[in-house]
Amino acid sequence: MSTSPSPAPPARPEFRFRMRITVGDAIAIGPGKVQLLEAILETGSLTAAAKRIDMSYRRAWVLVNELNTALKAPAVESGKGGGNGGGSILTPVGLQVIEHYRAIEARAAAACAAEIRSLTALFGPDKG
């Protein structure tokens, strides 16, 4: 007697902000770059940060370069590679980018909490 697996419960709706600041056609800062900055802060390495967030080293390097170019002062400083690797650190500007970005997200989510609840309540399995 074979039993078929029971269907997985439907995923709960999840609200996520996708705030970006653009400079010309380039995305100067957005959720991916902030996530990368946070991973660099945690790991002290661009290579390790890229691995942590499942991103290629080349893509991470490009994103950091774009961000550093767009800002008045760099967000990330990297040492030269070598036997022990060079490491990467966030500058005070990099720390401020994370702090401001996450604060804006939190304030926006709090200000829109009722609307977010109402919108996400429209999603789900109830087909009435």
Rank of each mutant, 00 (worst) to 15 (best):
residue 47 T to W: 00
residue 119 L to W: 10
residue 103 A to N: 07
residue 98 I to C: 08
residue 77 E to C: 15
residue 59 R to G: 13
residue 30 G to F: 01
residue 89 I to N: 08
residue 100 H to A: 08
residue 63 L to D: 09
residue 75 A to P: 01
residue 95 L to V: 06
residue 104 I to F: 05
residue 101 Y to I: 03
residue 34 V to K: 01
residue 72 K to R: 13
residue 61 W to F: 13
residue 49 A to Q: 13
residue 78 S to Q: 05
residue 56 S to L: 03
residue 43 T to H: 10
residue 50 A to T: 13
residue 56 S to E: 08
residue 112 C to R: 06
residue 52 R to I: 12
residue 68 N to S: 10
residue 42 E to D: 13
residue 86 G to M: 06
residue 58 R to W: 02
residue 54 D to M: 06
residue 83 G to H: 09
residue 53 I to W: 04
residue 106 A to V: 09
residue 37 L to N: 12
residue 101 Y to A: 01
residue 105 E to L: 07
residue 36 L to A: 11
residue 86 G to L: 09
residue 65 N to R: 14
residue 87 G to L: 03
residue 110 A to I: 10
residue 124 G to Q: 07
residue 89 I to R: 11
residue 60 A to S: 13
residue 54 D to R: 13
residue 48 A to L: 12
residue 105 E to W: 09
residue 58 R to L: 14
residue 75 A to K: 00
residue 37 L to C: 13
residue 84 N to K: 13
residue 92 P to C: 02
residue 48 A to K: 14
residue 97 V to S: 07
residue 57 Y to F: 03
residue 38 E to M: 02
residue 35 Q to R: 10
residue 103 A to D: 06
residue 114 A to S: 06
residue 59 R to Q: 15
residue 49 A to I: 02
residue 108 A to R: 06
residue 112 C to N: 05
residue 81 G to P: 03
residue 94 G to W: 03
residue 107 R to I: 00
residue 48 A to V: 08
residue 106 A to S: 04
residue 93 V to E: 10
residue 46 L to T: 01
residue 28 A to M: 02
residue 79 G to M: 06
residue 45 S to H: 07
residue 70 A to N: 04
residue 60 A to G: 12
residue 34 V to A: 03
residue 123 F to K: 11
residue 68 N to T: 09
residue 40 I to Q: 09
residue 79 G to V: 08
residue 99 E to T: 06
residue 59 R to A: 12
residue 52 R to L: 14
residue 39 A to K: 06
residue 66 E to Y: 10
residue 36 L to K: 00
residue 77 E to R: 11
residue 119 L to V: 15
residue 86 G to Y: 00
residue 61 W to E: 08
residue 87 G to F: 00
residue 65 N to T: 08
residue 32 G to V: 06
residue 77 E to M: 15
residue 119 L to A: 07
residue 53 I to D: 05
residue 107 R to H: 05
residue 97 V to N: 10
residue 78 S to N: 13
residue 87 G to T: 04
residue 115 E to N: 15
residue 37 L to V: 07
residue 78 S to V: 02
residue 63 L to P: 00
residue 118 S to C: 14
residue 75 A to D: 10
residue 46 L to A: 01
residue 61 W to V: 08
residue 69 T to A: 12
residue 45 S to W: 00
residue 38 E to S: 06
residue 52 R to T: 14
residue 92 P to S: 05
residue 108 A to L: 09
residue 99 E to K: 12
residue 66 E to D: 10
residue 63 L to Q: 07
residue 78 S to R: 03
residue 81 G to M: 02
residue 124 G to E: 10
residue 117 R to H: 11
residue 37 L to H: 00
residue 119 L to N: 10
residue 73 A to Q: 12
residue 71 L to N: 05
residue 42 E to M: 11
residue 66 E to P: 01
residue 117 R to G: 11
residue 70 A to M: 07
residue 67 L to P: 01
residue 57 Y to N: 11
residue 69 T to F: 07
residue 70 A to G: 11
residue 111 A to L: 11
residue 87 G to V: 04
residue 57 Y to I: 10
residue 56 S to V: 08
residue 70 A to L: 11
residue 92 P to F: 04
residue 118 S to P: 09
residue 88 S to H: 02
residue 105 E to M: 05
residue 114 A to P: 02
residue 61 W to T: 04
residue 49 A to R: 01
residue 48 A to Y: 12
residue 69 T to G: 10
residue 117 R to M: 03
residue 58 R to N: 13
residue 29 I to V: 04
residue 116 I to S: 01
residue 116 I to M: 04
residue 46 L to W: 00
residue 63 L to E: 13
residue 55 M to R: 05
residue 85 G to P: 00
